[in-house]
């Protein structure tokens, strides 16, 4: 199913800082980025360039303070929305470090989230089989459903669980924050297939944040943005990723120095 009228997530001149013990520290220094549904954008850059800050700011994490600029989803002011309103508006963040929630089972969590996103509880029969099938495709053991959210999960299991949610919650735009980190080759392929499946089935737009080009062998980006020191240093098509594969980030960092 691809949307008749494409959605747009528009980020303009976004400036974000965080509070540190040494005072306020600017991280994003004016970021412009436009995602249209169906597109896959890779955001790449060295550590500390502000990639994850962008992800968490879109999701609305309270730690990040927006000093200026805007984020709009089809003309709606995302920055004015609470975290849960953003999710219900169709934004999804696959987290780099998913949080453990003791005593809350995966099955209860998924149903609660689906109900919140859709505004009504899913029909029990179709939902249960849908969850089971999605888990099978991600090679997740059925016993997962009875485990507590992220508790005792390996790194790979946590990432599969994030992508499981992506497939079940069907957002309009997903930000994948270093989903490839900590995955071995097999897990990376399985997780990437899940992302591609969701992309084909729902036509969502994806912002894929990564340090390495490895995941781009499995998920083909339409656009690549290189982040350096809180701004977009260069933009291009998939060929830019290939160039980064060969050259790394050195030339951007050297240019700054």
């Amino acid at each position: 199913m691809s949307t008749a009228t494409p959605s747009q997530l528009v980020i303009r001149d976004l400036r974000v800082s965080i509070d540190t013990e040494q005072g306020s520290k600017p991280i994003l220094k004016g970021v412009d980025l436009t995602l249209t549904s169906g597109e896959i954008h890779a955001v790449m850059g060295p550590n500390g360039s502000g990639k994850s800050t962008l992800a968490y700011t879109i999701a609305g994490h309270p730690r990040y303070r927006v000093d200026g600029g805007s984020i709009e989803l089809d003309g709606q002011d995302v920055l004015a929305m609470s975290v849960d309103e953003r999710a219900r508006a169709g934004l999804f963040l696959a987290m780099q470090y998913p949080v453990e929630i003791p005593g809350v089972t995966v099955s209860n969590f998924l149903r609660t989230a689906k109900t919140a996103i859709d505004g009504e509880a899913p029909a029990i029969r179709g939902w249960t089989s849908g969850v089971r099938e999605a888990m099978e495709k991600l090679r997740m053991d059925p016993s997962f459903a009875a485990r507590n959210v992220n508790e005792g999960f390996s790194g790979g299991e946590k990432k599969r669980h994030e992508i499981l949610q992506l497939e079940l919650l069907k957002p309009r735009f997903a930000v994948l924050d270093e989903t490839d980190s900590g995955l071995d080759v097999d897990a990376l392929r399985i997780v990437s297939e899940g992302v591609n499946r969701a992309h084909q089935e729902t036509g969502l737009g994806i912002l894929l944040i990564t340090h390495y080009t490895r995941i781009l062998r499995y998920i083909q980006p339409d656009f690549v943005h290189v982040f350096v020191d809180g701004t977009v240093a260069e933009e291009g098509g998939p060929e830019l990723a290939e160039r980064l594969e060969d050259e790394g980030y050195d030339r951007y960092l050297a240019a700054r120095a």
Binding site: V83, M95, V99, F109, T112, A113, A116, I117, Q165, L169
Partner: peptide, 8 residues
């Protein structure tokens, strides 16, 4: 945050 980011 994790739960709210899932719409709850």
């Amino acid at each position: 945050f994790y739960l709210q980011a899932r719409g709850v």
